[in-house]
Design a protein around this nucleic acid. Sequence first.
RNA 1: GGGCAGGUACCAAAGUGGCCAAAUGGGGCGGGCUGUAAACCCGCUGGGGAAACCCUUCGGAGGUUCGAAUCCUUCCCUGCCCA
Length: 418
Amino acid sequence: METNDLKLMAREQFDYLKKGTVEIINEEELLARLERSLRERRPLRIKAGFDPTAPDIHLGHTVLLRKMKHFQDLGHEVIFLIGDFTGLIGDPSGRSVTRKPMTREEINRNAETYRQQIFKILDPEKTIVDFNSRWLGSLTSFEIITLTAKYTVARLLERDDFALRLKGGLPIGVHEILYPLMQAYDSVALRADVELGGTDQKFNLLVGRDIQREFGQEPQIVITMPLLEGLDGVEKMSKSLGNYVGITEPPKEIYGKIMSISDPLMFRYYELLTDIKLDQIEAWRKEAEAGRINPRDLKARLAWLIVADFWGKEEADKAAREFDRVFRQKGMPEEMNEIAISFLSAEKEELSLNIVDLLVNYRLAPSRSEAKRLIRQGGVDLNGQRIEDINFRIDFSQSKEHILRLGKKKFFRLKRTD
RNA sequence: GGGCAGGUACCAAAGUGGCCAAAUGGGGCGGGCUGUAAACCCGCUGGGGAAACCCUUCGGAGGUUCGAAUCCUUCCCUGCCCA
């Protein structure tokens, strides 16, 4: 093939890959390597690491996964690396409580969950799933020391979060500063051409370059992706902060969560989570600002798109209809969690249940105090009637079924079973 | 190894013998407004109790006291300075 053709094709790939990235270190290298890959008909090896402790994939992860998918689309080799080694030794970087080391079984189970989820985006045929314990687990202490000798403490402490912690008088465990080196060694073991990560990973990714060089390898190209803000619009999306949308959540959950985000965040989500072109998003933003378009409708469209991504169009339609019925027309959801209420034979005379007992016994409230609080504050309603008395008894003798609503969003169907 | 400063609720942070289930802010929850927006406003936020009130909590364990988050002893943990 002509050199010029190769250059052109590489350029094409490059442009496709660049879309949505924050930074590529560095661009010329990537371009050159793409070209070589085409010339030698050898796919690039793309690495992205994931923590085995949180097998719940949320929209934040999908930003990265989409980029991995892009590489797959171009025929490159994508390695989904599960950082099980950290899991085995117990990564303390939550820092409030020492995390329990995970067992092999737990990790395997989580890995399996990952597999089921990532293939909603990645191509199962083309994805290599690997575990870093495969090489990190068998390093000898001599090899570890040799590895650490290749870097300096000052360089490791440069990292922003360490610098901040140091300044703030917070503890830093020795294993924590070792962590970037371990991750870097993953790149050596895998001979990675490219490593993908969130912008918060930049430091670790760059250490990878240095360490690969030390091991006589060509340094990997580092590509950082933006971190998706969570539903609160401030913190990054994470499970521990509870501001996330899991991709396995039911359609109406996803839809509802997206509808609750702020308008500015909506445009951000459009940008990072859909294939809508940037100028189109920009145009919508202007229309909305000018009042020519209702932001609500844009948001509904976004919610639909995201649900459709993971559940298909039909489910997305259904979620949209359901949402309108429940929240715009203040109706009842089509399906709700059903709670089977059974009476002991001794209670059969009564066939009624105190509201507080119900909330606590069926684990709808964590404690009686909490249940009473909820009632006193007007957050409980039965068949459309607000319950204000904590001594209220739900009567099951006349009708076997009641609709219970807690707060604005939680509906339950209480069904008496005999 | 020596010196110093700390450890309080989900988080941050006040409180230094009774008025402390513990100020304040954040978060969370509920209500109002609305587009289930966001922002904003109001309320709640250890457990039990209808309430009075009772029980369990301020790093752990002991002790002093009528009474301890607060004083003493000891242990554990963290940071800073010196070596």
